[in-house]
Amino acid sequence: MPDEALPARYTIRVRGVLSETLRMAFPELDAESRGEDSVLVGVLRDQAALYGVLAQLEGLGIALIDVSSDPCPKGTER
Score class of each variant (00 low, 15 high):
Ala31Met: 00
Ala25Leu: 10
Leu50Asp: 14
Arg13Tyr: 04
Lys74Gly: 01
Ser33Glu: 04
Val67Trp: 10
Cys72Met: 12
Arg13Met: 13
Pro27Ala: 05
Ser38Glu: 08
Thr11Ile: 12
Pro2Cys: 00
Leu44Ser: 03
Met1Ser: 09
Ser68His: 09
Glu32Ala: 14
Val41Glu: 11
Arg9Lys: 05
Glu4Gln: 03
Glu32Asn: 07
Asp37Thr: 13
Met1His: 15
Arg15Pro: 05
Asp3Ala: 03
Thr21Gln: 06
Pro27Thr: 13
Ile12Pro: 11
Pro2Ala: 09
Glu20Pro: 02
Leu6Cys: 10
Ser68Pro: 07
Arg15Ile: 09
Leu18Pro: 13
Lys74Leu: 00
Arg78Asn: 11
Gly75Val: 02
Val39Ser: 01
Asp30Asn: 13
Ile62Gln: 01
Leu54Arg: 10
Ser19Gln: 01
Ile62Lys: 06
Glu58Cys: 11
Ser38Pro: 00
Tyr10Lys: 03
Gly61Met: 05
Asp46Cys: 03
Ser69Pro: 00
Met24Ser: 15
Val67Met: 07
Ala25Lys: 14
Leu50Gln: 12
Arg15Asn: 12
Cys72Tyr: 00
Arg45His: 02
Ser33Lys: 09
Leu60Val: 00
Gln47Leu: 14
Arg78Met: 13
Arg34Gln: 15
Ala63Asp: 13
Ser38Lys: 08
Asp3Trp: 07
Ile62Arg: 06
Leu57Gln: 04
Ser69Gly: 01
Gly52Glu: 11
Leu18Cys: 05
Gly61Thr: 03
Ala48Asp: 11
Arg34Met: 12
Gln56Ala: 04
Glu32Ile: 04
Asp46Gly: 02
Arg15Gly: 09
Glu58Arg: 15
Thr11Lys: 11
Ala55Asn: 12
Gly42Asn: 05
Leu64Val: 03
Glu28Pro: 06
Gly75Asp: 02
Lys74Glu: 14
Gly16Leu: 06
Gly35Thr: 01
Val43Asn: 09
Ala31Pro: 00
Arg9Asn: 06
Asp70Cys: 02
Thr76His: 03
Asp70Trp: 01
Gln47Lys: 07
Ala31Ile: 01
Ser33Asp: 05
Leu57Met: 11
Glu28Asn: 10
Ser38Leu: 11
Arg13Trp: 14
Leu44Glu: 06
Leu22Val: 11
Asp30Pro: 05
Arg23Thr: 10
Pro2Gly: 01
Ala55Met: 15
Ile62Phe: 08
Leu64Asn: 00
Glu20Asp: 14
Gly61Cys: 05
Ser38Gly: 14
Glu36Gly: 12
Glu20Trp: 14
Thr76Gln: 09
Pro7Cys: 00
Ala25Arg: 15
Leu57Ile: 10
Glu4Lys: 02
Ser69Asp: 01
Pro71Ser: 07
Thr11Tyr: 07
Gly61Gln: 03
Ala5Ser: 09
Ile62Tyr: 02
Val41Ser: 14
Asp30Leu: 15
Ala25Trp: 08
Leu57Asn: 03
Glu58His: 15
Pro27Asp: 11
Gln47Phe: 13
Glu20Val: 11
Ala48Glu: 14
Leu60His: 09
Ile65Pro: 04
Leu54Gly: 03
Ala63Arg: 13
Ala25Phe: 11
Leu18Thr: 13
Leu6Glu: 09
Arg15Leu: 10
Tyr10Ser: 03
Pro71Ile: 07
Val67Leu: 08
Ser38Asp: 13
Gly42Thr: 08
Thr76Asn: 03
Asp66Met: 08
Glu32Gly: 06
Pro7Ala: 05
Val14His: 09
Ala5Asp: 03
Pro27Trp: 04
Glu32Pro: 06
Arg23Ala: 13
